[in-house]
Amino acid sequence: MVFRGLKTWLPSDVRKQLAVKGKLIDLYERWSYEPIVVQSLVDLDVIQKANKKFTNKTFTFLDKDGETLALRTELTQPIAKAIAGRAQELEFPLKLYYNASVYRYKGSSTDESREIQQVGIEYIGAKATENYSDFEVIQLLLDSANELNLEDFQISITETKIWNKLYEALGKEIADKAYNYLLNGDFLSFEKLSDEYKILKSIYSPDLLMKSNSELVEILEKELGIDLADFKNLVSISDKIKFIPYECPDLELYTGIHFKVLIKDEGNHIAMGGRYDKLYESFGEDLPAIGFAFYVPRLISALANLNLLDQITESSQKVELKDSSKSWAEIYEEAKGQFKEGKKVLICKK
């Protein structure tokens, strides 16, 4: 029987994954992020408490005590639970990176994979304006792309403040309608709604499509009466950052900036993240946090399409040692000599 969405990676694929993940991990190490490993099995409660949208994508199990366990659908929530539980013995801000898989019952519509490798970071215990934390995280995304020699990419970014203000101004029913239209890509219905509720035209109208980041910030500050000064500084650090006011962040999770990394000619984003200052409250701690995750298979597929994988996947030279009349000790000495020169060894037939 062949199960949907299951994949085995052969050595040539794994070599590429290791090379790409290694580049990212080296970068995060340079910025003093520390590795963390959390268990694959979590309480179902961890997933439900933090982000309900994954509930229907979660593999669940009943253990012998009748407790419901789940395979993690994200790394952020189990890390939050683990860190919140030991917050008293840790020093903050805490900077962590992970290299692990998440499991989803239903893949996305364009990728059925049920196990998805992710590499990402969590910056815990610093508010947006403290320690340049938002700047550092966005810079890390830019540097991650540079490490992988990506050129035609974009960081699409928005601020949850915008939707919070729209909910306040329009009320839940209308704001929900507007949010869901955009979330589902129904720009036509959104435009019709915005003819009635003009304030919506400040986040999407065809006239806004060619506006620069700073022009969009000015329009939103004026129309919504919100202060986006810090955000304006953040989006100006690189021309790869594009402010997308009509983006729909998950408002249950995100509390500040929210972003996605897109690559030209790739149909889907390769990384996503944002600020979630309230997440730790659901685990009993008041710790602001920000983070992101790269979806490794999507990233590798994009790098392959751009012919960038070979540059990243450097392999050391392999030396063949023939099976001969030499003793094992002699062969082993010979192998050690090759290792010292940085070469790989393969013992093969005469």
């Binding site: 035609d152 974009q154 036509l188 060619m210 000619d265 149909g267 889907n268």
Partner: peptide
Amino acid sequence: SHLIANPSSFEFNKEFFAKLQ
């Protein structure tokens, strides 16, 4: 008939779309 776009491609081709309009 409707014009549709890939959400990611749309971000790189907004100028094309604006010019079509």
